[in-house]
Each structure stands twice: as structure tokens, then as C-alpha cells.
Amino acid sequence: MYVRIRNYAYPRPVAIAGVQLVMACSLLYYAIGAPGAIYVASVVMGSCYGAHWAIVPSAASELFSLKSFGAIYNFLTLASPAGSLIFSGVIASGIYDYEAKKQNSMKYNIVHETDKLTCYGTVCYSLTCGILSVLCIIVASLSMTVVYRTKRVYARLYGNSYT
């Protein structure tokens, strides 16, 4: 019995959406503060991040062809440090500082500008992980929108079995 791979093919943005949903679930798991969540979230997030970087270049070449792949790949590579700057440098640090000031003011009833702020507990990053989880869900829905809008491209690539 001969089985053609094209009969079971699916677009790569579907895989991206799946990875994003798994990332969203692991971030929500950390945000609720379950015991040992940092270990589970770290392993799952690292695996999903690696899967994402394995899928995205091939999806970009599939959708935009290899003609301008170098420029597109460099643009995709810039997304990681830009996201780190925005989310780690601005959002996560701002929320962490807010929670640390709140904890410090409860402890000492006054906060000076020169005080070292340290936040304790899962509350320090719960809101940040919640925000990132919502963004992962948005990305998954946008990936599925790409799948819907590129039906004809994938029908041409994989034959009529996709449509």
C-alpha cells in the first residue's frame, strides 16, 4: 500500500499556531503559580522556542519563495531581540519594579529612590506571563488566518488534497 505524503500534509503556519498554543498554556501554568511551575515552564518554553525557530524559516521560504529569503530571514531574526527589548526591558521590568515597590512599601511603609527593590513570590512575573500568554494566543489566531488566506498557495504546493 503506497501512501503519498501529500495526503497528510498541512501548512507550516498550522504548526506555528500549535507551538504558540503550547507556549500560551505553559505561560498560564506559570502565571497561576503552581508548585514547580518554573521548571515545567522553562522546559516547555525552551522546546517551543526551538520548534518555532525550526518552523519559521521554512514557512517563510514556502510563503515568500527563496528569491528574497535572505532579507526575510534577517527581518525574522530581528524580531527576537526587538521582542526581548520590548517585553523584558520595558513591560516585565516595569511590572517587576511595581510589585517590588508594593511589597517594600507594605514592609517598611516608605520607599526611597535609593532602596534596592527585590520582589518575592510568583506575583513578580504572573502578570507578565499572563500578558505573554494572551499574545501567544493572538499569534496562534493570526497564524490560522494566514493558513486560511493562503489556501490557494498550499493547494498549488501540495495538490488538491489540502483544499
Rank of each mutant, 00 (worst) to 15 (best):
G70H: 09
C25H: 02
P35C: 06
Y108D: 08
I72H: 07
G159R: 05
R4H: 07
A100Y: 10
I32W: 14
K107S: 07
H52I: 05
R156A: 14
I110N: 12
A37I: 08
S58Y: 09
V44M: 08
A140Y: 05
A9F: 04
C25G: 11
L132N: 02
V147S: 07
A71N: 05
L142N: 07
Y49L: 02
Y158Q: 08
S42P: 00
I138C: 02
I55Q: 07
V3R: 12
A54P: 04
L21D: 00
G46Q: 14
L66E: 09
F87S: 01
S141I: 11
P13A: 02
V134T: 01
A17P: 03
E62R: 10
I95R: 03
L117A: 13
A41Q: 15
L85K: 05
I32F: 12
K116V: 15
R4N: 10
V90Q: 03
I16M: 11
A54Y: 10
I5M: 08
G130C: 08
S88E: 11
S105F: 08
G89E: 07
I138N: 00
I137S: 01
N7R: 11
A71F: 05
P13W: 04
N7E: 13
A92H: 04
V90D: 01
G130H: 03
E99T: 14
G159K: 06
V44I: 15
Y96V: 13
P81I: 07
N7K: 12
N74P: 00
W53Y: 14
L63Q: 13
D97Q: 12
Y2D: 04
I131F: 01
